[in-house]
Amino acid sequence: MKIKLKIWRQKNAKAKGKFVNYTLDDVSPEMSFLEMLDALNSKLILQDDEPVAFEHDCREGICGCCGLYINGRPHGPGEKTTTCELHMRSFKDGQTIVIEPWRAKAFPVIKDLIADRNAFDKIIIAGGFVSVNAGSAPEANSILIKKKNADEAFDSAACIGCGACVAACKNASAMLFISAKISQLTLLNQGKVEAMERVQAMVAKMDELGFGNCTNTYACEAECPKGIKVTNIARMNREFIAAKVS
């Protein structure tokens, strides 16, 4: 396959970025998207050009490192697929592919296709945990949890923190990310004790960090590679209101 690439290049956080065009002539449909970028980088290096910086680690859809905005969609055209799981067979011979970093006020670009998603860590620091010290936990089976709740909590906990939800949202809202964590911890008995403080602290932090509001477009759910549902947001809103009135 022949592929035309239009890639966002930006030297560092302070520099102004721009799109640069490249072509690759011998792309195999079996290549993963990141392997295609590896091939581009090898070519650039040997031509004395600077390779394109992008983040990746597990390359199997679980670490949340990779996250490219491909042809106007976070993680590209695949359903429930991270960038690293995307394969070139999803593109056509001769197609132009536009690749950008996540764009959001809370996620500044550091270099080329790498955005700083540290704001997610800050939200977790604000309250995304259960306050239990090692050594003080009760016997695991002494806390019974309905299978249905455990399964639902797992579905929310499957979030990989990639930030696609923020990148997909026209308001750059982090509601899906936060609500998934809040849902997970409120669905489990262990997390209930601090539920009210948690939701208030996390929402306040989100506002402070410059994430936008949720206006119910559901773009986040549509683009989430792990299928995290917007029903989490509804649950969080209920929790938030309950915390406010109590």
Partner: peptide, 19 residues
């Protein structure tokens, strides 16, 4: 296992609520 469970790790459960 006690600690991870208490920290909110959603391990798989049986219908009776046990792990």
């Amino acid at each position: 296992i006690d600690h991870l469970t208490a920290s909110g790790v959603p391990f798989a459960r049986e219908y009776g609520g046990t792990l």
